[in-house]
Design a binder for these strands. Structure first.
Length: 799
DNA sequence: AGCACGCCGACT
DNA sequence: GTCGGCGTGCTC
């Protein structure tokens, strides 16, 4: 039998199936979806079995050298999904398969130098290598390449390739009886009055069935490891390696929760989803539900029905470590049926959660983007919460959008896909309006709470009236009132676009990164300036490098500065600051939130990460310090993002009994995305923004594709982009627009120039073929000439 | 990608 | 002659 294998070599020339003979002893057990180790040229690498056939065009086939799995890690459905992804995103097949598995399962090839058949006892390495071998790098640190090659030719040395997993399952030694109970009694009697401790242990196994760890047994019987060991050596007991799960939520109890009675509105909302479940028919549903409208309860009850049907559920959330409250809700409702997959887990923990799904020990998975590939085989529903979030788009190969994958899987399993958001993406809302998706509107809060009052403060006015601080008078007054009333405030600083750059006051010189076309960011912590793109770091200059003036200062607003100013103007306020610096450590995120939730602080100050999912009853004021910060980014979605962010943030206020208030500070208060967010008016925003999109030919009216070119030399970069642009222009219809070549918004990163070509189109059935042709045409320049080419068939990042 | 093979200039 | 540089082509 022959296995068709995709090898783990992400390159243009190896992106196809290779045939391997299956050794007789494995013929029965090798199945598509298993990982194997195969000889590939002179080395050994990992691969995925795609199919098993009986004939091959190739006369001489090498044999599979190792089988890595007992059961396939990828089902037929996932294999097919992988090839679909490859076609859709123009990535290598291995990349598409790899992305569906936890990173821990990616192969790690190690090379070891070992003695060959003819041992040269004179050689200096003989003693160093002995029988265990020497790591490749280590060998080369002592000897030259030349020596190694000569020794290999002379058969004195050889190179062994080991394909290992990055993380092995954690195991623990457990003890159980090796004999039947009668035999145990027999053994015990034979001991007579001697070895009383050992007899105790035997008694224990007479009374208890199953296995126990060394540690537990030692604790229970107050005995030692050696006593147990001696029973093992007598073959009365036996040791066994048992796989252990690292449980990231260990030791935490989740209060069981019961389903809540749905309001009439919620009942209406859930019924089309339940209908789809009963009919076992795929459909995509967009729940447009304002913040606090009870979307989560609808998710929970839909899943409940799915579980009753004996099926499984996937719930995607933008970044789950950011919303421990969400995990808690799912764990309390479904208990141990839930696996959690998010970026806060270690590689090993993710691997363990994945195995729980693979072994069907759980029925629900809650996780970030990649959880959409959870290896369930009887999917009943896929839910994507905060559907509009850009983190559902992966910005590296394969550049997929979780929404598309979810719908693809939903079609396969004939099950509903539910998208939920208070601020749906224009793409989804347009599809729902056209009837492609079923629109479910939920425009009232569960407890009939009014939406918070939002007031926009014109910061230009503040400046004119002499207030140069980052807090407007209105915000300051309201902050003071909250402190007096012992209510809490969330202060939101959108840092993007407002980073702290360093500028000379005399000549206007701005310090830029020498490797990237971007200004350096000042870091107060160690008095340095750092580049956010390449990590370049230099000391804060004492004088301007350009005009030697000493009036060189940093400008802009970081959370640190806000905190400083806050303590200056409101010294009595207790502030919790949340940003990348304070949440780097594992679990610190949750700790800070708990601190705030327990009322140990008055003000929660943070960046994007506090914008969503938080729900604290005592928060009655939300302040947005720079509401328009994102508006000026070079991105056609800037208005949409601003609207979404402001709506999300305002939703943090007054979610319970106390009414909430929101203050948005802005330098462009009249912009429609800010005004309409303040009015909680999604409909108007949608209509207004659609006009702009139509006018400029952007989604959802046009599809986009983006080709990014990067090279160390500017001329090469421009030249390639130019050729690609004209090639596409010649191939595509006149109704399509090919823009380029233009420099990227950041024209140089890490000493590489960056150019791009954007394609706007309505229908181009052969676009992917043309793009593939470009990929193929430049494959040599990519593998040797140092050219980088990224093709995104659904771009979300314009930078 | 990674590695071998082969062709060419430099040097013992 | 031989070493090592890099361009080329192959991997079932």
């Amino acid at each position: 039998m022959i296995a068709k294998v995709i090898v783990d070599v992400p390159a243009n020339q190896t992106d196809r199936l290779f045939d391997y003979a299956i050794p007789k002893e494995w013929e029965e057990m090798i199945e598509p979806g298993m990982r194997v180790v195969v000889p590939f040229g002179p080395r050994k690498i990992q691969g995925f079995v795609i199919s098993v056939v009986s004939e091959s065009e190739h006369a001489k086939l090498k044999e599979i050298s190792e089988v890595k799995d007992v059961t396939p890690v990828l089902t037929r459905e996932l294999l097919d999904l992988g090839f679909w992804l490859t076609e859709k995103t123009l990535c290598y097949a291995v990349s598409a398969l790899q992305v569906m598995l936890p990173a821990a399962m990616k192969a790690n090839v190690t090379k070891t130098v070992v003695l060959g058949n003819k041992v040269n006892h004179e050689a200096a390495w003989v003693r160093m290598i002995e029988n265990s071998g020497l790591k490749w790098d280590e060998f080369l640190s002592h000897f030259s390449h030349k020596e190694l090659n000569r020794a290999i030719k002379n058969d004195e040395l050889e190179v062994r390739y080991d394909v290992k997993e990055k993380t092995a399952p954690k195991t623990i030694l457990s003890i159980s009886a090796a004999l039947t109970k009668d035999e145990l009694r027999n053994e015990k009697e034979k001991m007579g009055n001697r070895a009383m401790k050992q007899q105790d242990i035997i008694s224990f196994f007479l009374d208890n069935d199953g296995a126990i760890s060394y540690k537990e047994l030692m604790d229970v019987l107050d005995t030692t490891r050696s006593t147990i060991k001696s029973l093992v050596s007598k073959a009365i007991l036996k040791e066994e390696e048992v796989e252990l799960y690292r449980d990231p939520y260990k030791g935490r109890s989740f209060k069981p929760s019961e389903a809540m009675e749905l309001t009439d509105l919620q009942k209406n909302a859930i019924s089309p989803i339940l209908e789809s479940l009963e009919n076992r028919q795929h459909g995509t549903f967009l729940i447009h539900g304002v913040t606090g409208s009870g979307k989560t309860e609808i998710y929970l009850q839909s899943i409940h029905r799915v579980l009753e049907q004996g099926k499984e559920a996937i719930v995607l959330v933008p970044e789950i470590s950011l919303t421990p409250q969400m995990v808690t809700r799912f764990k309390s409702r479904f208990g141990s049926e839930v696996a959690v997959l998010h970026s806060g887990l270690s590689r090993g923990e993710k691997y363990d959660e994945w195995r729980k799904i693979h072994r069907k020990e759980v029925k629900v998975v809650v996780g970030a983007r990649s959880a959409v590939f959870a290896p369930f085989t009887n999917l009943g529903i896929i839910i994507i919460d905060e559907e509009h979030e850009s983190s559902y788009k992966q910005e590296e190969n394969p550049r997929y959008h979780a929404r598309d994958v979810a719908i693809k899987r939903g079609e396969h399993y004939q099950c509903p896909v539910v998208l939920g958001s208070a601020t749906p993406s224009l793409e989804s809302y347009a599809r729902a309006s056209k009837g492609v998706y079923t629109l479910i509107e939920l425009l009232e809060r569960v407890n009939k709470q009014a939406m918070p009052e939002v007031s926009i403060v014109d910061m230009r006015e503040e400046l004119r009236s002499g207030n140069r601080s980052m807090f407007s008078n209105e915000l300051y007054d309201k902050l003071k009132v909250r402190l007096e009333k012992k209510e809490q405030t969330v202060l939101f600083l959108n840092r993007r676009g407002y980073s702290t750059f360093v500028m000379c006051r005399d000549c206007g010189f701005v310090v830029e990164c020498p490797h990237c076309d971007i200004s350096l960011t000042y870091h107060k912590m160690n008095g340095t300036m750092r580049c956010h793109y390449c990590g370049h770091e230099e000391r804060f200059p004492s004088q301007c490098p350009e005009c030697e003036s000493e009036h060189i200062r940093f400008f802009g607003t970081g959370t640190q500065r806000v905190e400083e100013e806050l303590t200056k103007i409101l010294p009595e306020a207790r502030v919790v600051r949340m940003d990348v610096d304070t949440t780097r450590r594992k679990g610190s995120h949750e700790k800070l939130l708990n601190q705030f939730g327990e009322g140990k602080a008055d003000i929660l100050l943070g960046t994007q990460m506090i914008a969503k999912g938080l729900d604290f009853p005592n928060v009655t004021l939300v302040g947005v310090l720079a509401g328009d910060a994102m508006l000026h980014l070079p991105d056609f979605r800037a208005s949409e993002k601003t609207f979404q962010l402001l709506t999300q943030v305002s939703g943090r206020a007054g979610r319970h009994i106390l009414p909430g208030e929101v203050i948005v500070q802005s330098y462009t208060p009249e912009h429609y995305s800010i005004e309409m967010a303040a009015d909680h008016d999604f409909q108007s925003f949608y209509k207004r923004e659609m006009v702009t999109r139509k006018q400029f030919g952007y989604p959802p009216f046009y599809f986009l594709a983006m080709v990014n070119v990067s090279h160390e030399e500017l001329t090469k970069t421009v030249d390639v982009t130019e050729k690609i642009t004209s090639f596409l222009k010649s191939k595509l219809s006149n109704a399509s627009v090919v823009l380029g070549p233009v420099a990227s918004p950041i024209p140089r990163i890490k000493d590489r120039y960056r150019y791009q070509c954007m394609i706007k189109y309505k229908t181009e059935p052969n676009l992917n073929d043309h793009l593939k042709e470009i990929q193929k045409h430049y494959s040599k320049d990519i593998s040797r000439g140092g050219l980088q080419l990224t093709i995104d068939t659904q771009p979300y990042m314009m930078m």
